[in-house]
Design a protein around this nucleic acid. Sequence first.
DNA 1: TGACTAACGAACCAGTTCGTACATTAGTCG
DNA 2: CGACTAATGTACGAACTGGTTCGTTAGTCA
Lengths: 221, 221
Amino acid sequence: MTSVEEPARPNGRIRDAARTKAEILDVATKEFARAGYTGARVDEIAARTRTTKRMIYYYFGGKEQLFTAVLERAYSVIREAEQELDVEHLDPVAAIRRLAELTFDHHEAHPDFIRLVSIENIHEAEHITASEELGRIGSPALDVIGRILETGRRSGLFTADVDAVDLHAMISSFCFFRVANRHTFGALFGRDLVAPDQREHYRTMLGDMVIAYLTADRAAD
Amino acid sequence: MTSVEEPARPNGRIRDAARTKAEILDVATKEFARAGYTGARVDEIAARTRTTKRMIYYYFGGKEQLFTAVLERAYSVIREAEQELDVEHLDPVAAIRRLAELTFDHHEAHPDFIRLVSIENIHEAEHITASEELGRIGSPALDVIGRILETGRRSGLFTADVDAVDLHAMISSFCFFRVANRHTFGALFGRDLVAPDQREHYRTMLGDMVIAYLTADRAAD
DNA sequence: TGACTAACGAACCAGTTCGTACATTAGTCG
DNA sequence: CGACTAATGTACGAACTGGTTCGTTAGTCA
């Protein structure tokens, strides 16, 4: 209380570039996801970190670059998850179902990522397009899907004429919509698509849908 | 040229409440869809109308209420389209396929509506929830789906255990994702989901998917 | 140990943005 | 035609917001 000499760090000022940068990214992710790109406030992000706005400009350059950095990190998370996919030892039907379920789980577990993707689409993917890092990623999941599809088709199990990208779109559609549009859907139709007790129902529904599509007797059309 | 007496309307000032109001809504729809709720500028909206910002506050009260009015009108358009659904004279399989295609077409034809829905979800549907008008709409399509589903199930054609709301979600997922996420999807996977020459491909894919799901031999699982 | 620099903080600034106060006019109705 | 009101335009302001200027300090290395 009485001013005991505490000479060092009068403000508790610590130097740790990595930590400061990471903390800014963490807070910015939440803030951009919460309020959108324009709605997010640089001052607000700064206030929620242990550092100041000055550091945001020091490390990232500006709001736009900060958002790009947030997107890059968010995408790297899903990319890493996809790299651990290990389903090719299963038969094609089980493999696809498992892959669909992993996508389902990942979407559910990362609602902030879903929101960031929605926001980036409102801005017509301008940040992704401008980012060198994001330009050259290419989803690991795509390769996996491609190989399973090939195996399934050769064995005669799969009849559908789709490629990996289209199938990925189909699976993502369902998972994305369920999380991204849960608010308007809930308000309009009175059903909570992410209600915990409905989780298994929708997870099964997704798998059934994809497998039914891939294995349908196309001659019946 | 020489100031001939043109006493009336020195500024071409005309009084037409309905037209002014409608014009504000038109412009606001485009502006909100383009830039998001926070990104949209009241001054910008006003500048693009033949009237002034004053009128926005006179008729709508504020930015928030204007956005709600925009949403209400956007939803009323799709509601009206759904009311003209006339597919129940078809057999259940054809009826569902037709309904899915109409949803597909409507999403493609109204990208601004899709963007508004995305934006409203970022804001957790707060405007829809607060709107009395939107609270009590209930999609006409839902009734149609329900009846087709019932017919199909009674005749033994449909094996899937879904209700109308879930099937609506399934169909909407695919249509919504294709339009809403086309930018990030295109940037990341190099495929334009709304490319005109791919339209039939995806329209067929959607129908195949839904029908396969509904008619699949569930015993095989 | 002293100089050097990366890392940091406080205060500030110029432009923007939602909203309003005040004045004015077009149509309408007795 | 004269009064009255709905509809409209102008100008302004207070608060906010992204970004910057200037100065300070912690760690490091010769």
